[in-house]
Amino acid sequence: MKIYVCVKHVPDSAATIAVKEGTEIEEAITFLMNPYDEHALTEACRLKNLLPQAEVIAVCFSKPEAESTLRSALAMGADRGLLITTRHRHDAIMTARVLKKAIDQDGQPDIILTGKESIDSEGMQTMFRLAHLFNMPAATNVVKIETGDGAALVTCEKEAGVRETLKLEMPCVLAAGKDLNTPRYPTFPDIVKSRKKEIRTIELEKINLPEPASRIEMVGLIPAMEKRCPKEITGTTISIAEKLVTILKDEARVI
């Protein structure tokens, strides 16, 4: 049983993003594992404990510095890491192809886990593209997973608290939502143990992939503009409430 977990190396959610020339950002900031991928990895380790002889392999396509994210994955419980290195930004169309090829060259997946969204590119699509390349079924925003009889029974969260139960034939691709679990952060002994685990690095050029015909190319990047000029509302409680109602009525026109 092989469980592959796709983990993306992304800027810390609290980091300030400074745009340099073109579409590049200042990279001297902290990078971490994408938060949803932490849920995916934690789930992979939970499944591993239930299934005999299962192996958890974390896969990342990024710059060489992303080794730190794979190290965190190993400390959190993955058995091995695969890092496909590149110096450039790639779209989801290419990323899915790279992840597919790297996994194919490594072994036969029974389950592929991903996050439901990366917090840097906010693409919400890599898992579906990967699943299509593998001809596997896929589900997103997964909050519960049970496996057995060659199938995965999963619960997915939709909007307004609606949940859906799906049955997917294995192998399958499951994209983790936040309610799947509470990420298990490593202890110091975990970190020490993980130092002995292997990370295999492959250069993108070595896996020989043709340029896809379709592309999603970033051509501009600007800081999100804040056009607000905050105004204070003062007065007695009653008069504040009245002023708010006036704003809601005349300015926002929602009442």
Binding site: P11, S13, T16, I17, V19, T23, I25, I119, D120, S121, E122, I216, E217, M218, V219, G220, L221, I222, P223, A224, M225
Partner: peptide
């Protein structure tokens, strides 16, 4: 892009 901190054109 980048958690709402930037706006990207694709």
């Amino acid at each position: 892009q980048y958690s709402g901190k930037t706006t990207a054109t694709f």
